[in-house]
Write a protein that binds this DNA or RNA. Sequence first.
DNA 1: GTCTATAAGACGATAGAC
DNA 2: GTCTATCGTCTTATAGAC
Lengths: 214, 214
Amino acid sequence: MRDEDERPRRLTRAETKARTRALLLEAAAQVFARKGFAGASVDDIAESAGFSTGALYSNFASKDELFVELLSKRSGSRLAEAAEIVSDRSGSVEDEQALLSRLLVDVAGEDMDLAPLQAEFWLYAIRRPEFQERMAAQFRANRDALSTVLADRAKERGQSGDVPFDGVATVVMALFQGLVQLRRMDPELVPENLYGDAVHWLFSGLSAAHRAKD
Amino acid sequence: MRDEDERPRRLTRAETKARTRALLLEAAAQVFARKGFAGASVDDIAESAGFSTGALYSNFASKDELFVELLSKRSGSRLAEAAEIVSDRSGSVEDEQALLSRLLVDVAGEDMDLAPLQAEFWLYAIRRPEFQERMAAQFRANRDALSTVLADRAKERGQSGDVPFDGVATVVMALFQGLVQLRRMDPELVPENLYGDAVHWLFSGLSAAHRAKD
DNA sequence: GTCTATAAGACGATAGAC
DNA sequence: GTCTATCGTCTTATAGAC
């Protein structure tokens, strides 16, 4: 039971285990994204992380638990950035469009695993009623954050009213997801600035519809 | 070798085979939608169609071929309806919104297999470069059809110009996909008329942006 | 806490009877 | 043209060495 190393350990036992867990989760994200939930084997994941299946099962009860853990951690990583962009009133409208478009291009092009992983999460959730509500709650939280930002911005600009911010936030997020998927299929289908343009059209159409009611 | 039925056969041999193929494809669509491509077994599919695996393999070379066949047949089944709605100038703008929203509600709610199947197609395609282009071409064909309809409508209304109809069509389709997925996750996230509203906002914002440039 | 080895079963696909 | 039976492989998860 004694440790062979007498000098102070750099990593405690709990820390090395946490590190193993983190490495396994990272590898799992990649393998699940590349082969899908059913298509990925636990051997793939463990080996890709540099461990054995035994090590994996000492950290996670099952393949499902590993996947669900991922779903919990990797929820609104990128959406926070979008909310930040929209809430930042220092830039011009053109800057905002450019930044939103850039975000979409990044998600579709650079973080190659995110979009397929999100699709796997969605499929997993709609097939298991017990997780459907959990994922819906996650989305609602994200939407509420964006919705609040939109409402604040509208108030600052003196646009009073009955604008359905929740609906607009939902549309902005759904469009993002849809365009990311299309751009992953063929980048030429979704030009660099299409998302920014679309959000711009949406907002100006929205404020027009709102003004008309005054 | 003789048929036990002496009266003229209702189905020729080729017809029964075609019928078997059709039944297998139908069952495959359901099982793939419910369990995913990797998660579905050929036994599941054959049994669900009322045949054995041997019968399946006498009609399809492999599980992959069966899936790809599905992908080819079930492409733009619903998009044609959307194009029809947009191209139909007999109704009011309100009718158009209502019809588009209804279409989304139908796809998300009634044809329960379509959305997950589409997601499986997308995942399958982005993981296999050789099919990615085929699916992209399918999307482009659908987009072009919608784009043409939009351009015609704009011309009729005397809106000249530099409107990027391809981009608008892409946005309308991406938004549809995104909202369908959200509504499948939780119907309350996507109210009945959100899609129609969003398309309306989009178009009025678009024509505003266009007028501004004149 | 992580490894090797293995259990128990499901998988895709094939061969041969009918 | 479809069925039954089976091959070889890969799967998730566990047990015991270290």
